[in-house]
């Protein structure tokens, strides 16, 4: 329970959202985020990542979340959308030909 901090960024190669796991590796899945109890410590980690992990990660920063058992809830609308994806349909559900590689 209570508020925690998460370090996040974007994968340089793909642009996908990146979440830092507790073991220092990066995940595309929000639920795998490592929770940090201290904002300053989280910011230091983000700064270190910015200095040393440029190849993998771009623009790391920290966000605050409410952790309640198994659910993680970012505190702002922006971060909620970033964690969960666009809230609207992303592509036309038409029956046409051709699905993209990542469609």
């Amino acid at each position: 329970m209570g508020n925690h901090w998460i370090v996040t960024g974007n994968f340089t190669e793909s642009g996908a959202v990146a979440w830092r796991r507790a073991d220092g590796t990066w995940s595309q899945r929000f639920v795998e985020s490592g929770l940090l109890p201290d904002e300053q410590a989280a910011k230091r980690i983000a700064d270190t990542a910015n200095a040393t992990e440029q190849r993998e990660i771009s623009d790391p920063y920290v966000i605050e979340v409410r952790a309640d058992g198994s659910t993680l809830d970012p505190l702002s609308a922006r971060e909620r959308i970033r964690a969960n994806g666009p809230t609207i349909p992303m592509r036309r559900p038409d029956s046409g030909l051709g699905r993209g590689k990542r469609g």
Partner: peptide, 22 residues
Amino acid sequence: RVYDKGYAHLTTRQNVQYNWPR
């Protein structure tokens, strides 16, 4: 189709945008 998620977006300055290129 090949590099994005199967759609493009028309902008208010007559350009075209892709939201998911790598």
